[in-house]
Amino acid sequence: MKVEKSSLVAMLLEVGEENAAVLLARSDLPDEIDTDHDLDALLAFGLDRDEVSEVARLAVGAIESDDVNTRRRRGELEKTISRRWADLVEQWKS
């Protein structure tokens, strides 16, 4: 799976893998990481295969985080979008 290095670093931080995140951020790996090709390097940061797979899928949005703050932010965004649509429809009807 291909994933942006910055996204992977951010997701590692979010799931509490600070050491791996710092090591990845400072590594010579390219800006786009292929988790299959670069697996050995990722394992060297203290991650196991399952963690690499899960964090990569989280980073690309293939699965959702159980983080309460993420769900709260998504809910706030949905409300904002709903209000905006309601305002646009109201303007259109007037």
Rank of each mutant, 00 (worst) to 15 (best):
I81E: 09
S7C: 08
V55L: 06
D67K: 05
L29Q: 00
N69Y: 09
D38V: 01
Q91S: 08
I63V: 15
R73N: 05
E51R: 14
W92N: 14
L24M: 08
S94A: 07
A20R: 05
L77F: 13
E51H: 11
A21Y: 07
L8I: 04
K79T: 14
E32I: 10
G75Y: 09
A62T: 10
R72Y: 10
M1N: 04
A86P: 09
S94I: 05
L58T: 04
D40G: 00
E51P: 09
M11T: 15
L47D: 03
A62D: 14
M11N: 07
I33P: 04
K79E: 15
A86N: 10
R73I: 12
R84Q: 10
I63W: 08
E14M: 14
P30H: 02
T35R: 00
T70K: 05
S7H: 06
E64V: 15
R74F: 08
L12W: 01
E90T: 08
L23I: 07
A25R: 06
E64I: 14
V3P: 01
D28T: 07
E51G: 11
E51F: 03
W92I: 13
E64F: 10
L29S: 03
L42K: 04
Q91E: 13
V3W: 01
R84F: 11
L43H: 03
K79V: 14
E90S: 15
R49W: 07
F45C: 09
K5S: 00
G16V: 12
S53I: 14
P30S: 03
E78Q: 04
K2E: 13
V60H: 02
A56V: 08
L88M: 15
V22H: 00
D66E: 14
I81L: 10
I81N: 01
S27Y: 00
L23Y: 02
R74D: 13
E54P: 00
D36T: 04
D48E: 14
I81A: 06
I81S: 02
D67P: 02
E54N: 12
K79Q: 15
L13R: 14
S27Q: 03
A86G: 11
N19Q: 13
D36V: 13
